[in-house]
Structures are given as structure tokens and as C-alpha cells.
Design a protein around this nucleic acid. Structure first.
Lengths: 277, 277
DNA sequence: TGAATAGTGTCTGTGAGACAATATTAT
DNA sequence: ATAATATTGTCTCACAGACACTATTCA
């Protein structure tokens, strides 16, 4: 742009040419997570819960036939939030879903087509509220994680297939224990979405301990046993019953409904109690 | 783009035209923070600490003569991290500075020239390490904050001038106590940078309680009194000495140096002790 | 000597970890 | 009756808030 003197902002804007700088593209990519219930054989036992993520199979280049996060380009005339809502309504029939910004990915070659920033979001939903059938190219994958030294093996399992990838967990900031996740092995996930998945899992593990975020993936009514199962599957460790109940007792409210039918003592159904802020 | 069948990713990429979608621009904008020391009259008293932020006065349109965060456009061929480093090295002579992503701002009209995303970063530095003179158009502003109901009045004071603005603190997410900051009164800050400042202050207030982030703005050696002052000025409340010392005793290490010369008992100089992760 | 900061000791209440004990149901 | 989950009680230990007390320096 020429160095020119303008008298007013209006005048400046009239002459401004956005093409003086080469521009770029941006997408939103959303890690949609939930918990799945798998019935067990033993009639007494509770359903097994797993932490799951919604992926979409690409049917066009680039990364044709690989799995990726639901996402889309941000239109020049729409806000980021709007793009997020648009993508979410393509994949689900839900409104007022929990979303939060996860990270903005900006490696130069993360998309082979051209320069594309990805503004990654994380979203938590209650899968049971989904009434519409999933888009034909989308599927839920149950997550299992194995950490060995600085490597994290992540296994994603849907009804039809299994995906494995490995990321390297690298400390980037000592004072705040901030990590980044480099992909070291990955055949099936497109772009840098494997990093985003690892990042989102870590974020959720942290937030579940000091926020009420988990209730975004719970049904309206739930037993404390179920809630504890969700905590356990996300944290990847078992919790002591008594301690767990103490921790969440201020976050939930007893209802007068019970869940019966298992081969054991019925349990009270609770609902989320919003905190005073 | 035409719906065409390509045989391979290579072939697809050869024919891909990035101009099929209208592209946009992106900047990085960095909230550079530190603590300032103001000497007091009374020879016995400690210097007063304040929490400060580095702003730059714009000398071109748009928002000519208003203050903004140091920032710049992301080049198509550079990573976001590289852009951040580039901006930081323009403003400081420091390397290996603490930075973290704060938020990506994406309102459509946040820049009157064209569509510009802003990837906001926060950075903490030790002001005393700055050896070069500040760029002529940059200045440090001490921050003071007044919260009344959902409004937050923020006062920024440099050697030469004082800026006031007000943001409205709006709860956007009950379960995670997530807020957004809408600008309701602002004459002097360009773009949506007033929101970014409010967001960064909140982030820092939170992180100081559960991370070691504060040590990024401390000198190598410091007294526990000084460290406590920094905590107090950022949190906006006084802390009990004994309790504070208990909390940070695992984060610091005693040295054999002392600070003497105040009209009172000398104090031991401590240094940061990196945690085992 | 006195003002100011530095540093420690102790009491108390809260809350988490650990584990034991009791309650209830469907088969 | 038994297996399984639901729910509560209690002991202990760690730690934070509150506050008092001692230590040390320099004008």
C-alpha cells in the first residue's frame, strides 16, 4: 500500500485495498464429544461407559477417505461463532450445545491446498438427545488412551472400524505445565486433527476437575453411580465412592425419582444444580 | 470449484484453486504484561507494585492516534508462532518469553478495513530485563480495576496519560463460569482490544492461583514480600503472610543472598524452583 | 527508640483419602 | 441366598484462614 496521507478514517477506508496483502483461509473444526453406554452381559452389572468422539469420513480430496473432525470454512461474512453453530447443526439436531475454543492451529503446511488456519473448538453433548440419524459419513468412536513416557497412544473404535494413532506429549512451558502434541504415528486422521483430539482430551481431563463441564454430557436425570462412571472414564482412573459423593454433593440435587430394575439396590436420580456465581 | 473426479491427491492439488473461496486476513495481537515498581516517599516502605500492560499508539488509519496491543498481520508463509515472535522482538529485546494463546476474536466488523481475525496472545515478562528503549510510540500502563455488578471499569495510567474504559462481564457458560467482555464505554482503545485486555486480566487472575505463571514476570532473585506483592496486585486483594508462605514454599528455593538497606529487617532472596512434572 | 518489614508458631475448621459397614434389590 | 450396586460413617492427615508473636534493621 502506498504511503499516503489521508485526512480522515473515512477517506482512508475508501482507498484501502485489502488485496495489498495476500490473504488466507480459516476453518472451524469441532471436537464433538459425549459418553456412550455399552450394555453388559451380567444383568446385575451397570452399563459400561466410554468417552467418545464424533468423526466424519472425508469423501473428497485432500485426505480422501480419512477421518476428520466436523468442520468447515469460515465465510468472510460470518462470525466464528456462527460458523461453529452452522457446523454443529449439520452434524446434530441440538441447539444450545456447550462449545469452547480449544486452540487455533497455524502451521503453514497443515493443509496441502493452501494456507488455512484452523480454529479448533470442543463441544460436549448428551448423545442420547440426538434424534436424527447421523449423517452417513459420520460415526462415533470410543476413545481409549495409553500413556507411555512422553508418548500417548490413542485408540478410536467405532462399530465398524478401529483407528490408532500416537502423539508425542511435549512440554512447551514449565511454569504452567503446558504441553503440545506432535503426531508421530497416524494413518487414518486427516490434517492435524489428531493433535486437536489429544489437546481436547487433555483440556477436558483438566476442566472436569475444577468446573461443572461434565454435566453438559449428562442426561437431565442421572444416578451418582453413572456420574462417577463418567468421571472415571474421562480421568482414566477409579475414584472412591465416598470421596466422590462429597465432591459433587454441592453440584447436584436429589429428585424424588429412583432408578430400579438392576439386580441391586435402586438408586436415587439426581439433577444438576447450577452454582451461584 | 467444479465437482470433478480426481484420481489422486496430487492431481487434485494441481487443479485446486484457492480463490474459489473469498479469503480473509489474520493478525496476532499480544497483551504484554509485567509488574512495575513505584518508589515510595517513606524510606522504610517497600516500593509499590502495579500490574502493567504495554500499549502502542497507532499512527496510521484506522483508529489513528488510539492505543492498541502490539500486533501484526500473519504472513501467508509464516506460522502463528513465528508472527508472535516477530511482534515480540519488535517491541522487546527479549527471547524465550512466556506466551500463551488467549482467544481468537472473530466478529465480522472488528476491523473496518476488511475481515480480520485476531489471534490474541498473552505474554508475561520481567520489565527490568528490557534494556533497549521502548519504541517511541509504545508505553507501559499501570492497570487498576473496579468491578461494580456486571460492569468492570478499567483504568490504564502511563507516565503521560490516563485511559478509561468499561466492559460488561457477561456469563456465557454456566457450567464452566465462562464470561465474555463486551465493550460498553471506550474512547481510546482501538479495535476490540479492550475486550482482549479484560479477557487477559481474567485469565491471569485465574492462572496465578493454580500455576507458576507469575514467575515469568519476576526477576531471577526476589524476596517473598515482593512475590506476595505481585500476587496481591494481580488478585486485587491482600493475602495473609503466613498462609502465602505456606502456599509458595514448594515453588521457591532459598538462596544465600539477602536484600538489605530498607529501614527494617533484611529479607532472604529466593529463586524459582521448577516443579517436577 | 520506633516504624516498618521479615519470618515463625499455633489453633481451628474444612475437606480429601482410605476403608469399613450397612441397605436394597432381582434372580 | 447371593451378587452387585447404593449409601453412609468415621478415622486420619494435609492444609488454609486467622491471628499472635518474635526478629531485625536504619534514620
Amino acid at each position: 500500500m502506498k504511503e499516503k496521507k489521508y485526512k480522515s478514517e473515512e477517506e482512508f477506508l475508501k482507498h484501502y485495498n485489502p488485496d495489498d496483502f495476500e490473504r488466507l483461509s480459516a476453518t472451524v473444526d469441532i471436537l464433538i464429544t459425549s459418553v456412550s453406554d455399552t450394555p453388559t452381559q451380567n444383568y446385575r452389572k451397570l452399563n459400561k461407559k466410554s468417552f467418545s468422539v464424533l468423526l466424519v469420513k472425508r469423501n473428497t480430496f485432500p485426505f480422501k477417505d480419512k477421518w476428520c473432525l466436523p468442520g468447515g470454512f469460515i465465510d468472510v461474512k460470518e462470525t466464528i461463532d456462527h460458523a461453529v453453530e452452522r457446523v454443529l447443526s449439520n452434524e446434530t439436531n441440538l441447539h444450545n450445545i456447550y462449545t469452547e475454543q480449544l486452540y487455533t492451529m497455524g502451521e503453514v503446511d497443515r493443509d496441502p491446498r493452501m494456507r488455512v488456519l484452523s480454529i479448533a473448538y470442543m463441544s460436549l453433548i448428551d448423545k442420547n438427545e440426538l434424534t436424527d440419524k447421523l449423517p452417513f459419513n459420520a460415526a462415533w468412536f470410543d476413545i481409549s488412551i495409553n500413556e507411555r513416557d512422553q508418548f500417548v497412544d490413542i485408540k478410536l473404535k467405532s462399530e465398524k472400524e478401529e483407528i490408532n494413532f500416537t502423539v508425542e506429549k511435549l512440554l512447551v512451558q514449565q511454569t504452567t505445565a503446558k504441553y503440545k502434541y506432535n503426531i508421530v504415528e497416524n494413518k487414518d486422521i486427516a490434517f492435524d486433527h489428531a493433535s486437536i483430539i489429544a489437546l481436547g482430551i487433555e483440556r477436558l481431563k483438566n476442566k472436569i476437575e475444577y468446573t461443572d463441564i461434565v454435566f453438559n454430557m449428562m442426561p437431565k436425570l442421572f444416578t451418582l453411580g453413572e456420574l462417577q462412571q463418567v468421571y472415571e472414564v474421562i480421568l482414566g482412573r477409579t475414584l472412591l465412592d465416598a470421596a466422590f459423593r462429597r465432591i459433587i454433593k454441592n453440584k447436584v440435587m436429589k429428585t424424588n425419582k429412583m432408578r430400579t430394575g438392576g439386580g441391586h439396590r435402586p438408586s436415587v436420580l439426581f439433577k444438576y444444580k447450577e452454582p451461584r456465581l
